[in-house]
Nucleic acid binder design. Structure first.
Lengths: 138, 138
DNA sequence: ATAAAATCGTACTTGCGTATCCTTTTATCG
DNA sequence: CGATAAAAGGATACGCAAGTACGATTTTAT
């Protein structure tokens, strides 16, 4: 239901959130620790930095670190940085014009179900992913 | 949130459901009417026939028709015939072992949200897609 | 026998995930 | 101060799956 890239972003953010504050981590190390291809993880981390969720530092002793507290970031922030959230707002019958005003037969039913997902992304803070973080190894 | 193929299947089933009972329709005609590539729609219809949702008839005067009443088919039946429903049951952090017994930090939260979607598929009958069917043109 | 239709196999296209290589930045060492 | 090494940043190419297109085969009514 979410893209692989989105999953990587969530796991990487959870990893960074449990590090000592201010500490930078390397894409390569994180990839190894989390079992994510380091090359691609680098791209994902860059995207998160571009969106202001992470701070990146180039050169020796560089890496990525959190820019905010884990309770100031929700899952929606993370996911929307790496995948198009329109996925969760489209008519199930593919109508371009489907909306509250011009609704397809199941518009409201479908909207309620998918909104449940999006609202969960919006209300859940990164902190929620941290509990028992070290049991996650995979 | 659903695959394009799934959307095609829903629309095609809705189209067939509003036809006079026992009437066969051609993949080509349906494709033209619904604005779906006829070649691909053929594949989708074949899959639906293989799963017992449609009856297919080869040769002259052939085509596809419903095999059940529209209120005896739910959206889940249709979607599961053309796409893997596992998509709606996987851990958001990608853990293979995540389950009610061995739960990741947000297992139950995530499960509740995605179950809302699946339950909607299960409880909603094809009939629900038929209202104002002819306003759908696209 | 012919024509109409599903069925089947194959090939093309696009996007996502992946892997490399090169460039740029920056701390550190001689 | 200059050279070097370590890191992100960026460009490019590959593999794979989904969606698409098309042609060959089989079935069946006329």
């Amino acid at each position: 239901m979410i893209t692989t890239t989105g999953e990587y972003a969530l796991r990487a953010m959870a990893y960074l959130a449990q590090l000592p504050e201010g500490k930078y981590a390397l894409a390569k190390d994180m990839g190894r620790e989390l079992g994510i291809p380091p090359n691609y993880l680098g791209k994902v981390l860059q995207a998160l930095a571009r969106e202001g969720l992470l701070v990146s530092l180039r050169g020796r002793n560089g890496g990525f670190r959190m820019d905010r507290k884990p309770d100031e970031i929700c899952l929606f922030d993370i996911l929307s940085a790496v995948e198009p959230m329109k996925r969760y707002e489209t008519c199930i019958l593919g109508h371009k014009k489907c909306s509250d005003e011009t609704a397809c037969p199941i518009h409201y039913t479908w909207k309620e179900a998918r909104d449940r997902v999006v609202n969960m992304f919006r209300k859940t803070q990164l902190t929620r992913l941290l509990e028992h973080q070290r049991a996650l190894k995979k």
